[in-house]
Nucleic acid binder design. Structure first.
Lengths: 173, 173
DNA sequence: CGTCAAACGGACTGAGTAGTCCGTTTACGC
DNA sequence: GCGTAAACGGACTACTCAGTCCGTTTGACG
């Protein structure tokens, strides 16, 4: 990726945006044609940047992970660890629950780009909030993320926000 | 279904068995060809009994529901309501967790044949166990099934048995 | 401008799959 | 056995979709 002509760059972004929307809505079975159409390009253009559909899916996920990493960094930089933790969880939950199709995509391409780092950042945020006395200290920081994830995936359609509040209340000091 | 020639009857059973296996393993994306091959018949034979793939999927689910209904009836007939409840839950959990692909099939064909009756039977079993003093009485019988289902679907790969025990312990009087 | 490589996209290929057709085989009653 | 309707299954159609090809367009740069 040495340089990219202006039109190519623009189309690349359009394709990624469209792919995110479509995969988020329809999961990994969405067709490349539909994505190309929504992006306003021919589907050959999609395949020029992403040799296979899986590569495209991978790129979409990577981008989403990057967003989450940014939110995590923000939370780590915030001055008040307690509220920072709760805000972080809410934002990440909102982001990931707004795109149920992407969960299936992640499952589809077993690779989880950057998942480990994200997990580690989450643990740091938890530990910081615990030290600040905002969270109970008898749970391991690394266990909080899976715990919340489980609660979200188990939540019945449209009820995940309530579930999340219950879980968060349970974690408060 | 007035009468069925002996060979037709045999093939019908083979098809249903094969479809159950294949759908359980690969979910709703499994191809009719594969099912037919596993059943040892041509795929036209499958389509003769089940005009569409969805009809076949529906039949497979119906059959599974029937199995569960039988287990529920047994639990209701048992003399000791407490153990009957726990045994019922274990057997149903084992049955449904042994076929993860079928969950996706159920989701695929929105129709859930007999789900309501099954739910009602479950509630009866719970209520009976509560009256016998084996279960805590501060949960509504109708809430127990969804609760357990959530725990199972949320369980990480291969950990569902542990999760189930925790949940069941929580329900004991 | 004029040039040219980069980028484009419509048309094509090939694989897979749901569902149909029809000539052949087989169970079953007589 | 024999005749026949039921059942069978290989071949066929129609369609979708991932991925390729190639003739045309366009942005960048002198």
């Amino acid at each position: 990726m040495v340089e990219l002509r202006a039109d190519a760059q623009r189309n690349l972004e359009r394709v990624l945006d469209a792919a995110t929307e479509v995969f988020a809505a329809s999961g990994p079975d969405a067709s490349v044609d539909e994505i190309a159409k929504r992006a306003g390009v021919g589907h050959a253009t999609v395949f020029r940047r992403f040799p296979t559909k899986d590569d495209l899916m991978f790129a979409v996920i990577e981008r989403r992970v990057e967003e989450m990493r940014a939110i995590a960094a923000e939370a780590l930089a915030a001055e008040d660890p307690g509220p920072a933790f709760f805000d972080f969880v809410h934002r990440v939950a909102e982001l990931s629950m707004s795109a149920p199709g992407l969960h299936k995509c992640v499952a589809h391409c077993g690779e989880k780009p950057g998942a480990a780092e994200l997990e580690a950042l989450g643990a740091k945020i938890v530990a910081r909030a615990q030290r600040a006395g905002a969270l109970r200290k008898d749970v391991k920081p690394s266990q909080v993320a899976p715990f919340i994830r489980d609660a979200l995936t188990a939540a019945p359609e449209g009820e995940w926000r309530r579930y999340l509040e219950v879980v968060l209340d349970g974690l408060r000091a």
